[in-house]
Computed example of a mutant assay.
Amino acid sequence: MKNSIAHILKSSTVTAGITLCLMATATAASPLDEGVNSYRHGNFEASAKTFAPLAEQGNATAQYLLACQMINGVGVNADEKRGWELMKASADNHNPDASMVIARRLEATGAKTDNIRPLYQQAADQNQAQAMLWLALDAMDQGKPDQAKQHLSTAWEAGDPRAATLLANRFADSDTARYQYLRQAAERGEMRAAAYLAEEARTLGDPVEAIGWCAIATGLPGHDQHADWKSIGDAVEKNCSQYDKDLSSADRATNREKVDQFLARFFDGYKPWKPWRPCAVN
Results as ranks from 00 to 15, higher is better:
G219A: 06
A198V: 03
W213I: 02
N43H: 15
E107D: 13
W156S: 05
R170T: 05
D234R: 14
S248V: 11
K88W: 13
A227D: 06
V74N: 00
V259M: 07
D146W: 10
M100H: 03
N95C: 10
D114L: 13
T13I: 12
E200I: 08
D97S: 11
S47W: 02
R202G: 03
A28N: 08
N239Q: 14
N3Q: 14
A158K: 04
R265D: 10
V236P: 07
L166K: 03
Y179E: 12
P207H: 07
H94P: 05
N43D: 15
A194M: 02
A131V: 00
S30P: 04
D138V: 04
E80Y: 12
I216E: 02
A67P: 04
L32F: 11
T109E: 12
I116E: 03
N169F: 05
E187G: 07
A55M: 12
Q147N: 10
L137R: 15
T113C: 11
M23G: 11
G42C: 09
A67M: 08
D92Q: 14
L65K: 08
P53W: 08
S38T: 13
T13A: 10
K144M: 07
W213Q: 01
P161W: 00
K81S: 14
A108R: 11
Q63I: 12
Q69L: 09
A123S: 02
Q225T: 03
L220E: 04
A195Q: 10
V74W: 00
T154K: 01
M87N: 09
L119I: 09
C279M: 09
N59C: 13
G222D: 01
R40M: 10
T165N: 06
D141W: 12
A136D: 03
R265N: 13
S12F: 07
M23F: 11
A148C: 05
W276K: 00
I116S: 05
A129P: 02
M140N: 09
I71P: 01
Q63H: 11
D160P: 02
A91F: 03
Q147C: 05
M87P: 06
A129N: 03
A235W: 04
Y39M: 06
L133Q: 00
V101A: 04
H226Q: 14
I71K: 02
T19N: 12
C279V: 05
V208T: 10
Q128F: 00
A164C: 07
T50H: 11
P278I: 03
V74A: 05
L263Y: 07
F44L: 07
I5H: 01
A123M: 01
S241Y: 13
E187K: 12
D79Y: 06
R256G: 05
D141S: 15
A185T: 04
E45G: 13
R178Q: 14
G83A: 09
E34V: 12
E34C: 07
P278Y: 07
H226G: 08
M1A: 13
A163S: 01
K49Y: 10
D173H: 14
Q225I: 00
E257Q: 15
A215G: 07
R265G: 12
C68Q: 06
E209H: 12
I216Y: 04
G110N: 11
T61W: 05
A124L: 01
F44Q: 04
D246Y: 14
S174Y: 05
A185V: 02
D173E: 15
D138R: 10
A158C: 02
L204C: 09
N3H: 13
K2T: 13
A168H: 03
Q63L: 14
N3V: 08
N169T: 13
N115G: 11
F51T: 09
E85Q: 15
